[in-house]
Amino acid sequence: MKQILLITDGCSNVGLSPVVAAAHAKSEGINVNVVGVLDQGDVGELGASEIEEIARAGGGLSRMVNMRQLSQTVQMMTRKTVVQTIQLAVQKELKQVLGNGSIEALPPEKRGEVVRVIDELGETSGLKVALLIDASASMKPKLAAVEEAIRDLMLSLQARQGKSEISVFHFPGSRHGDDCVMDLAWTSHLNGVQSIFPKLQMAGTTPTGPAIMQVVDYYRQGQNDMSDYSRRARNETDGMMGDYVV
């Protein structure tokens, strides 16, 4: 299971629309969740509707929260999305077997076993969450809470039985041409990580869309490594077969 969790406090203002980028992510099998963090006021109507739409396009959830609720929200969203991802997959199977797609349509006494399977898979399946943090100037006072939420999420994921990894990115990048910067590559623990965002340069633009695309690329690279590996393996087998076939 693959997720991107975007934490932001406002509107994107540069480059590709984040809604389009989120739809790209979804087509790659990555769910996009969005948390909008509020100051005293709110993120503004424009920001709020963008946040909601990014999540909808990315097949994920969106929430507006204040800093105090951030850890809990991030943790619950990730968990909920895991269940929903598995539920969708199981419902697809149900569709083929029963000719109807929803668990709600089953009589209550038949739901138990299906949900038991969903729970089991949700607990044991591998999970990758890429956290994408808006580090534009207005986010600066919130980064400590964001870091705390990331550590808290790692703690929850470590309790799962399945393999769980996170990676962390922030945007915009400090150099020109970088839409986002990786702070932490895939890892399943934060032992020894003193600070996730050391001396961050806060820049003014908010290229949310391009940043999402870059994270999707990062996911794809991981896959490419895998497929390179399997291609190589296949070639080797082919070679061996060739010797035998002639």
Partner: peptide, 13 residues
């Protein structure tokens, strides 16, 4: 949520 509640029901059962 049906799935949520059902997993609670599974525990109770």
């Amino acid at each position: 949520d049906t799935v949520d509640l059902q997993s609670e029901i599974n525990v109770l059962k």
